[in-house]
């Protein structure tokens, strides 16, 4: 499954970067995430309840932040397992300043699905992923406007 999209934020690249690297914020605003725990440098353990189209499941696994080029780009390496199948993804996230307080975030990557996740409803899942990312960006925007609310 190909993951790709962009979103423009009313924030500087530095502000956006620091929010994206803040575990507490991410745990609060990422759709479905119930627990996000730092287990090492740039390594996190995540637990998420996700309903993706026709299948819903409880995922747990690791997130690794790699190739950090502050404040421009990083690669998010995701490994999440569940009883309905597993997700392995590498997504490159880039922050491109548009003006002093505008930054465009773009992401591009690929997710490999296995098990029930792979064989059921995969066609609708990129749509679901799209929806989830939009929810995340909206929440992040609000977070930037009203930190900690």
């Amino acid at each position: 499954m190909h993951l790709k999209g962009t979103h423009k934020f009313h924030a500087s690249a530095n502000d956006l970067w620091s929010k994206l690297m803040d575990t507490g914020t991410l745990a609060r605003i990422t759709p479905g995430v119930s627990k996000l725990e730092e287990i090492g440098k740039d390594q996190y353990k995540a637990i998420a309840e996700v309903k993706m189209g026709p299948v819903s499941g409880s995922f747990s696994g690791n997130l690794n932040v790699q190739d950090k080029q502050e404040p421009r780009s990083f690669v998010l390496n995701i490994k999440q397992n569940s009883k309905i199948g597993n997700v392995a993804a590498d997504v490159k996230i880039e922050l491109q300043p548009v003006s002093d307080n505008e930054t465009e975030l773009s992401f591009d990557g690929k997710a490999n699905l296995s098990g029930l996740l792979a064989r059921t409803g995969q066609r609708v899942m990129s749509g679901v992923a799209n929806t989830l990312s939009k929810q995340f960006f909206r929440a992040l925007e609000e977070e930037l406007a009203n930190p900690g609310s």
Binding site: P54, S114, G115, L116, R119, G121, V124
Partner: peptide, 14 residues
């Protein structure tokens, strides 16, 4: 089947 030999349409939705 995808490149990891996962069956990608194993339901009547797919």
């Amino acid at each position: 089947y995808d490149e990891n030999a996962q069956l990608t349409n194993g339901s009547y939705m797919d």
